[in-house]
């Protein structure tokens, strides 16, 4: 059935998402500037599990009264396809990005049945001078470093999560597609429990499974490449000149669905003059991922 939202067509399709393992870490520092330095490093090169191992991003800024140590901070979410990779990546990034960042500290941001190391092994950097403190049932490690002391909680929680929620913005020009994507991202940043892991939250190189080259297991999504409209089995109408994708990872199905709804509605509120013609979504025919985010249902509030 045809759906139009403020003249923008919403395709009767769905995003296909996968089970992941996720965690949240709270990073604090002397001020927000250094909290962001630490968080940006921690979540850098974490756009896609395909090449980065994890997908990570800054969830939101935290007020001083929301952080364990009363300093400014941000929360980050990190997702991986399995618990082992998540543990490895978290420890590596803690060691190289948080331990090294002046004044930064790291704390658990989520409870879960499964616990993974935050500072449990990192403490050995203290070379015997590290000390632990058990405060209100939580164990913290104090590691002496050159700027004073690095504080980290021993573990954080690991929970079941979902990755790969997405939608596509089809517009008449590249600037129009990107401007709409930026509006969507700004709105989606206000939704808790989700991240958009790609640069600026937007991905321009959506992929399909497989390739003509044997060594490649993913390759460009030619059906949505505007310059290939005459050369491939295109999904694009003649007026579409650019497509941007927003990928969402979240802690629950509902979180991702809400994020998609907020993002799509923000774009549709721009109207026809935005240059956006259609909103679609990427999927694999519903055969690979167990979670299907149907665009019509999400926007009608009936997705489940």
């Amino acid at each position: 059935m045809m759906m139009l939202l403020n003249t923008i067509q919403i395709d009767d399709t769905f995003a296909e998402a996968f089970n992941m393992r996720g965690t949240r870490v709270i990073i604090t520092a002397q001020n927000l500037k250094w909290a962001y330095h630490a968080a940006n490093a921690m979540t850098g090169f974490a756009t896609s599990v395909i090449g980065c191992g994890v997908e990570a991003g800054i969830e939101r800024e935290l007020r001083t009264e929301e952080t364990p140590d009363g300093r400014p901070g941000v929360s980050i979410l990190m997702f991986a396809m399995g618990s082992k990779v998540l543990m490895q990546q978290l420890e590596t990034r803690m060691g190289q990005c948080i331990l090294t960042c002046p004044t930064a500290a790291a704390f658990s941001g989520i409870d879960g049945e499964d616990k993974i190391s935050l500072g449990k092994h990192l403490r050995y950097f203290g070379d015997g001078f590290q000390t632990s403190k058990l405060i209100d049932g939580k164990r913290y490690w104090r590691i002496p470093v050159m700027d004073g002391e690095f504080i980290t909680e021993e573990t954080t929680g690991m929970v079941r999560a979902i990755g790969g929620g997405n939608f596509l913005i089809l517009a008449t020009s590249q600037p129009a597609a990107l401007a709409a994507a930026e509006v969507a991202i700004e709105a989606m940043k206000k939704v808790p429990n989700v991240i958009m892991p790609f640069p600026g939250g937007v991905v321009r190189s959506g992929s399909k499974v497989g390739s003509k080259y044997k060594t490649m297991f993913a390759s460009t999504n030619d059906a949505f490449c505007p310059t290939l409209k005459g050369a491939t089995n295109t999904e694009l109408s003649p007026e579409i000149e650019s497509v941007m994708e927003i990928v969402i990872d979240g802690l629950t199905f509902e979180d991702i669905a809400l994020s998609m709804k907020v993002g799509i509605e923000a774009i549709c509120n721009l109207g026809a003059e935005s240059g956006v013609k259609r909103i679609s979504a990427g999927n694999y025919g519903g055969k690979l991922g167990p979670h299907l985010f149907k665009l019509h249902d999400i926007l009608n509030g009936s997705n489940s």
């Binding site: 140590d69 913290y140 004073g148 002391e149």
Partner: peptide, 13 residues
């Protein structure tokens, strides 16, 4: 003499 950030956690408790 030092400023120890972990004391904020302790004092909070």
């Amino acid at each position: 003499t030092h400023t120890l950030p972990y004391l904020s956690l302790l004092f909070k408790s």
